[in-house]
Design a protein around this nucleic acid. Structure first.
Lengths: 127, 127, 127, 127
DNA sequence: GTGGTCTAGACCACG
DNA sequence: GTGGTCTAGACCACC
């Protein structure tokens, strides 16, 4: 359960967490039956208020992606499988598109952008 | 003055406009002395409320990037040059980083992501 | 936090509130760490719209005088101390100057103006 | 016709000019039949746009304080006498009151404020 | 025509 | 409960 919160982007924290959990469900990192970390643990790790986590779980439950069992914890439902990959891929594509436009606006061409992305991979694998 | 607003991302509209104008100043698309479109024009083009634009201009003025002259219009200041490219590049890099992580979380590798980005360029040039 | 709004003067409400909060910071009536009344309280007390207060706080924050913490409230920053008294005194002096000129233009001499000011103090202490 | 414009106060320019002309009428500095300087002259002296002056004159004419005679100039009407001093005195008093409160907010007492006002007179007479 | 102030009210995000 | 964003619309000031 790797969730990264970027405070500088202006994207609401709840939205970031929500999106990333949905991504993990779609990619298979979270599978039906898996248990999520407790509210306290998540809040602690991400350094956010417990209520923020609670509100995220509420929304995910109302979407049917997770199930909260009183006294036991929070679990990914069977319904979470399906094929939500399509939506995810569209989001990723939109993100890539935004990046390309931003680069263009700065006068950064395709070649330079590719280098920048390779650098991201290099950094990641070097971790 | 190409400004794209993405309503689905969760990033506040004001923030998107703010960032893109700053980007245009940094890249040289907007140069000292240039006049910005009027509040009404911008609001119309971007399909947002005039107050939203006004708030953006207020912030940009307090940063010293633009100057508003009553009855005349809004202009880019000399101060807007400087070397703010560094900050811009850092933002772009952070954005690229986020994209890479998002792709990884979806099980999309470097090769596939590259293709996706090439597709963005192809689409853009095809426009 | 005594803030007086004079609607008849033609000075924008935001400006009046802004100036008075700055004055309170300069005089020590508001000290670093102090919490301001909430947006709703201020708006209620002063009988103005919440957005008007919000715009004031936005400006004060961009000046670095206050800090707004989401969900917690608005606080005076450490930076608010410094020595902004000089600016304040200049403003007060300019105000006194304007009063004297206005009196002169009406044919009111120094003696009568002094009486008028004493009357203000008498009224104030009589409250 | 001494008119002082203070750009830093936030009071609209038209309002300042308007008030001061009314004051001059009330005090007798401008008497029925007197001719006002031309729009061009006023605009030049006060360093404001001619349209700004025009709008002021329009309002004064609609109040009946002045009369504009095509090709001749602008004149103070008979009606301008009356006894508008009461209103003027109330305004002056309100101004004095605001000054006293501002001083108090800064921790400036009656004695110091008196000195500051005496200084204004000294400066004025020294001019 | 330009920018600017203010109001009213809906709805969101964070603690 | 806190602050924050956005909309809609009236009205003002300046060129």
């Amino acid at each position: 359960m790797i969730i990264r919160i970027e405070k500088a982007t202006g994207v609401p924290i709840t939205r970031q967490i929500l999106d990333q959990i949905r991504t993990h469900c779609a990619s298979g990192a979270l599978r039906p039956g898996d248990q999520l970390p407790s509210v306290r643990e998540l809040a602690g790790e991400l350094m956010v208020n417990q209520n923020t986590i609670l509100r995220v779980l509420e929304r995910l439950e109302s979407e049917g992606l997770i199930e909260r069992r009183h006294g036991l914890g929070t679990f990914v439902t069977d319904k979470a499988a399906g094929d939500p990959m399509k939506v995810q891929m569209e989001q990723l594509s939109a993100e890539a598109d935004a990046l390309v436009h931003h680069a263009e606006a700065l006068g950064i061409g395709q070649k330079e952008l590719s280098k920048m992305i390779s650098a991201c991979y290099a950094r990641k694998n070097g971790d």
